[in-house]
Amino acid sequence: MRNPVMIGERLYLRPLEKEDAVELARYTAEETETFFDMGRTPVSPLAWERWITKLYTHEPGSAIHFAVCRKEDDRLIGTVGISSIDWINRVAETEAWLGGAENRGKGYGPEAKHLLLEYCFERIHLHMVYSWVWEPNFRSAAAVRRQGYRDAGRVKTLGRKEGRFRDALMFDLFRDEWLAARDAWRARQEAKS
């Protein structure tokens, strides 16, 4: 493992490095899904490199992002992070993205997200985190509910899919709700194995 911050069973989280820009660009170029209202967009490695460089210029900053890597081969498979961090009120917005269709459906997403939430609640002691999910991305909505998030409302957006405007769903999560969801996830994992 290279420079890990949070370590799980199959994955670990580490700071993003400039060299990750090429892999992130490859994932965005190969994206099979349209998760967001701007759809699929090829993003230059230069843009990823500038974004990564800016992430670590303030300590603490208003955003914290991690590379999600496999322990077995150190391969970068996505990013998780928090943005809009309000250090006074101790709240932040969570984000997660797994790149590469070959990495989906293997349980990496929940493991990465639980590592991020452990960082949020047990390392930097946030009080509450929240998340936005674009309504057509129903798999993400189901995933955050399984991670313990509660529905907080439905807001309008100007994002369109298949010719009509779509809503975004908002969710929020406290530490005790996350702990209960993580216990349930671990129990499901044990039952599978």
Binding site: N89, A152, D172, F174
Partner: peptide, 30 residues
């Protein structure tokens, strides 16, 4: 349209954040 629980810290307690929106009628209709 949405309410985030206990978003704001106040002395001795916390307060929710309420997300308000105004949507133009042409968007609302769509």
């Amino acid at each position: 349209r949405a309410r985030l629980r206990e978003y704001f810290a106040r002395p001795g307690h916390r307060v929710d954040l309420v997300v308000y929106q105004w949507v133009h009628p042409i968007v609302e209709a769509a």
